[in-house]
């Protein structure tokens, strides 16, 4: 497809002395949607954490032509990678709108931020209704929407989504995936998606990678991966 936005070479990641990733090589295209499949404990969440410097890593990570391996999390965020973490990472005692303000913390343009907040509300009308409500009191679905909205406020080139459908009602999940597709197409944000719901993820993605115990075992166009016999049996259930 188009040019490479992010690529890793021989990426290792550790929690303390425990090694979780054992040399991953993959890349994400500018404006593309990549999904990372794998069983529980395969290292999907760790991969996302490695990309934003939340765990100790070894190996190369290149983002937008720049080596960011070993960078501090906040510096990586400032370069334009927005990570929507597992469990959403909402600032639960602040209002929804304050959460959005926080999302734009790296930016200085007051007017641009105000405009972006309005734009984000257009994607997530429910958040506009609840903007002065404490984030912790929102429903799980609304909190997930808020987390995505907050990530969007960074004006990211790449958004990392960790299990966005977790704990959500099917109807909400569908709604969210529609919005994710629109974000990808209208805003040009590249997405990297870790999902339990592999069928849905493969539908949205154009590229897919499969990891097992911290090693990449398969990568390619999402359609091909979705057709693979083993993947289907293990992750799609048919």
């Amino acid at each position: 497809m188009s040019d490479v936005l992010l690529s890793t070479r021989n990426l290792h990641a550790f929690y303390g002395n425990l090694q979780v990733l054992h040399g991953l090589d993959f890349s994400i295209a500018t404006g593309g949607v990549t999904t990372l499949l794998g069983a529980n404990g395969a290292g999907k969440t760790t991969t996302l954490r490695a990309l934003t410097g939340m765990v100790r890593t070894r190996g190369d990570i290149v983002f937008g032509g720049r080596a960011i391996g070993g960078f501090a999390t906040e510096d990586i965020a400032r370069l334009g990678i927005a990570h929507v973490p597992e469990g959403r990472g909402t600032f639960s005692r602040m209002t929804a709108e304050e959460n959005l303000q926080l999302g734009a913390m790296t930016r200085g343009d007051r007017r641009g931020i105000a405009a972006d907040i309005e734009r984000v509300y257009a994607y997530f009308p429910r958040l506009a209704e609840r903007k002065n409500q404490q984030a912790g009191t929102l429903s799980v679905g609304e909190q997930q929407m808020l987390a995505i909205a907050r990530a969007l406020m960074l004006r990211p080139k790449l958004m990392l989504l960790d299990e966005p459908s977790f704990g959500l009602a099917p109807r909400i999940v569908e709604e969210m995936f529609v919005i994710l597709r629109r974000l990808n197409q209208e805003e040009g944000v590249a997405l990297m998606l870790v999902e339990q719901n592999a069928a849905l993820a493969l539908e949205l993605a154009d590229q897919a990678s499969l990891i097992e115990t911290g090693r990449l075992v398969m990568a390619g166009p999402a359609q091909d991966i979705g057709r693979d016999e083993n993947v289907r049996r293990a992750y799609l259930g048919y």
Partner: peptide, 11 residues
């Protein structure tokens, strides 16, 4: 309140 999330938004 939440240092990990704060880093993710670039604080």
């Amino acid at each position: 309140a939440n240092p990990a999330s704060a880093r993710l938004v670039g604080i």
